[in-house]
Amino acid sequence: MMPAAHGFSAADWQYLTGSLQLVDAARLDRPTLSVADFTDAARCRQLLDQLGPVIGAPSRRVTASLLSKRLAFLITGASFYALSACDRSLDISADNCRIDASHDGTRWTSCLPLHRLDAQALPSNQRDRARSVLVGQVFAGLIAPLWAVLHQVSGVPMRMLWENTAVRVYSLYERRMVDFTEPAAIARRDADWRFLIDAPPALFGGSVNPLARFLYAPTHRADGETVRFRRTCCLYFKATQPPVYCRTCPLLTVAEKKGPERITAKQR
C-alpha cells in the first residue's frame, strides 16, 4: 500500500497521484514548460504546432481546445479534490506549477507537476477564506492567463475554453466525488460546490463566473440517460476519424441526421 504523503492519507494520495495525475515536478523525466514559458505567445504557438500532428488535430484551434480540456482536468481535479475530499489546500500558483502536454499519439499521458506538494490543512475558522484564495489562485491566477494565450495564438473562442473548464469541474463534483460516505466529507463537498457556482467573477479573472454560466439544466434522454448538453463544441470530433462526439456534444443531434454510421459517442 502506498504510504501517506505530504499531509494526505495513503488512499487520498494514491487517488491524487493515480487518477488525477499529480506528480512531483523534480521526479518527472520529460520536458515541461513553466507557466511563464507557456504564456509566451511564440512558445505557445510552437507547442501547439508540435502537438497538433501527435493528437490528430487539423488546426491550432482544435489543438488549443483539446489541450485546454486536458489542462483543465489536471488543474481543477487535483486542487478541488484536495480541497473537498481531503480538506487541504495545494499550492496551485503559477510559480509552483509546470505545464505538461504529453501525448503518446493515442491518449494523453500528461500530468500536473508541482514543485511543492505539501498541502495545508484548513482549520474550520479559516476555511472560507482559504477556499476563496485557492479558487482565485486556480482560475484567475493560473487558468485565465493560460486561456488568454491559447485564444491569442489559435483563435479558439474564450467561451469554448471556459466551457471546457466548467465541464471538468462538474464531472469532478457530480461523478468523481458522489460516493462519499463520511458526513463531514459530504458536507464539505456540497458547500464547496455551492461556493464555486456562486463565487464572484473576480475569482475567475473576468466579468462572469463560468461555472454558473454553463450550468445548464440536464436533458432526460429517451434511453434513460441524463445529460447536460454543452452549448459549445470542444472540436474533439475534428481530431478523430471517423468523427467521434463527446457524450454531451451539442452536435450530436446534427450527427444523428447524417446517419447512424456517423454517431459514436465518447464516454469520457
Rank of each mutant, 00 (worst) to 15 (best):
123 P>R: 09
41 A>E: 15
138 V>I: 15
83 L>G: 10
173 Y>F: 15
189 R>C: 12
94 A>K: 08
84 S>A: 14
120 Q>E: 15
219 T>P: 07
128 D>R: 03
196 L>P: 02
109 T>C: 15
210 P>E: 03
96 N>P: 00
198 D>C: 11
266 K>C: 08
78 A>P: 09
199 A>C: 12
114 L>T: 09
254 V>G: 05
98 R>M: 02
111 C>T: 14
135 V>P: 05
100 D>Q: 02
57 A>I: 05
263 I>C: 05
247 R>C: 12
218 P>K: 06
137 Q>R: 14
170 Y>V: 09
85 A>W: 02
243 P>Q: 14
109 T>L: 10
113 P>L: 03
17 T>A: 15
259 G>S: 10
218 P>L: 07
179 D>Q: 14
107 R>G: 07
200 P>M: 02
129 R>W: 12
3 P>I: 02
92 I>W: 07
178 V>Y: 03
240 T>I: 08
64 A>M: 05
65 S>A: 15
4 A>M: 11
6 H>K: 10
18 G>P: 08
143 I>C: 07
149 V>H: 13
73 F>D: 01
183 P>N: 08
181 T>C: 06
259 G>E: 07
229 F>D: 04
216 Y>V: 06
22 L>E: 04
105 G>R: 10
162 W>G: 02
71 L>S: 06
171 S>T: 04
63 T>S: 15
86 C>P: 09
200 P>Y: 03
186 I>A: 05
91 D>S: 00
170 Y>M: 09
81 Y>G: 03
223 D>M: 12
122 L>W: 04
234 C>V: 14
172 L>T: 03
252 L>T: 11
233 C>Y: 06
135 V>R: 08
154 S>V: 04
232 T>N: 10
117 L>D: 02
68 S>A: 14
143 I>Q: 04
138 V>L: 10
208 V>P: 10
187 A>L: 06
152 Q>H: 13
85 A>H: 03
75 I>N: 03
151 H>W: 00
267 Q>F: 11
242 P>G: 14
195 F>V: 04
25 A>W: 00
111 C>G: 02
234 C>P: 12
104 D>C: 13
69 K>V: 02
202 A>L: 13
27 R>D: 09
43 R>T: 08
11 A>E: 15
228 R>E: 03
205 G>P: 05
241 Q>N: 11
92 I>Q: 02
210 P>S: 01
90 L>V: 06
211 L>K: 06
136 G>A: 11
206 G>S: 14
